[in-house]
Write a protein that binds this DNA or RNA. Structure first.
Lengths: 143, 143
DNA sequence: ATAATAAAAGACAAAAAACTCTTTTATTAT
DNA sequence: ATAATAAAAGAGTTTTTTGTCTTTTATTAT
């Protein structure tokens, strides 16, 4: 469904959001441990998301990644789009470039429904909405 | 969503089903052209599906791939499972191995709904049900 | 100013996925 | 029997994805 990169990205962002709840910046090492993902790899991913303004970062001692108020409102769909592009939301399920209403693939209409629901679900979920459940241990990001 | 391999597989199977409607066997070259996919690559894919009994084949002159009655009843979910396995239907959306009802990822319940709908949709679609629409030119498998 | 910290950047490496080419085997028609 | 046909099999290549390692740059505290 998502690329590994995207899975890590979503998990990392939710993790950072949770830490940012307390106004705490969190370093790559802590994120890496917190979501059980390869350190340098998520570093890369977060650099990219940082460049795109979806996450904020600070260098030096006491530095790390964090989310300012506006960024906490970003949806998971925003993350997915930033990492995997929007082919998941708009591309043809059978990989046809010219698939469209006029030239639909056999599953065009069926996929449309599924994709819309997937998109709506991700669009309506913010990175910060899981904070409480995570703190309470009702939801998990590792393993 | 699906791997490229799986996209080709579905398209090839629907294509073969349509040709099999007339009791005609269809060769790799024709399939390759018919669904606009690399010849040797779909050959590989169909060999695998053939081994698993999802498609039938005959060597020699007038040989090719075809679907016997039973195989026409196979669902697209069967194809997907044979090619990509069932991680799309059962795996965690965020890539967590231990994600479960007891230790759910933040999106566990949301994904469950989407995945079920995707699965139901594919499970209820047979490879042969698009024959008429394809013949009438209402649905397409190329480009 | 200096040392310590932590992200940014860039070059590499490994693994998986996608794709190609060649040889072999089975079948059919002549 | 032979030649032609077409899938099966296997080896190999390319590209993409995933993951690692090292160096650089920015910031902070002393």
């Amino acid at each position: 469904m998502f690329s590994k990169t995207c899975e890590y990205a979503i998990r990392a962002m939710i993790f950072i959001a949770q830490k940012s709840e307390y106004g705490v910046k969190v370093g790559i090492k802590a994120i890496s441990k917190g979501i059980n993902a390869p350190e340098h790899f998520i570093a890369k991913i977060l650099q990219e998301l940082s460049r795109k303004g979806l996450v904020q970062s600070a260098k030096g001692p006491n530095g790390g990644f964090f989310l300012e108020a506006e960024s906490k409102k970003n949806s998971l769909a925003d993350i997915v789009r930033a990492v995997d592009g929007d082919k998941l939301f708009t591309g043809c399920g059978l990989g046809l470039k010219n698939c469209s209403e006029k030239m639909p693939c056999p599953l065009h209409n069926e996929f449309k429904v599924i994709r819309k629901q997937l998109h709506d679900m991700l669009q309506s979920s913010t990175v910060a909405e899981f904070n409480k459940e995570l703190i309470q241990g009702m939801k998990h990001l590792k393993r």
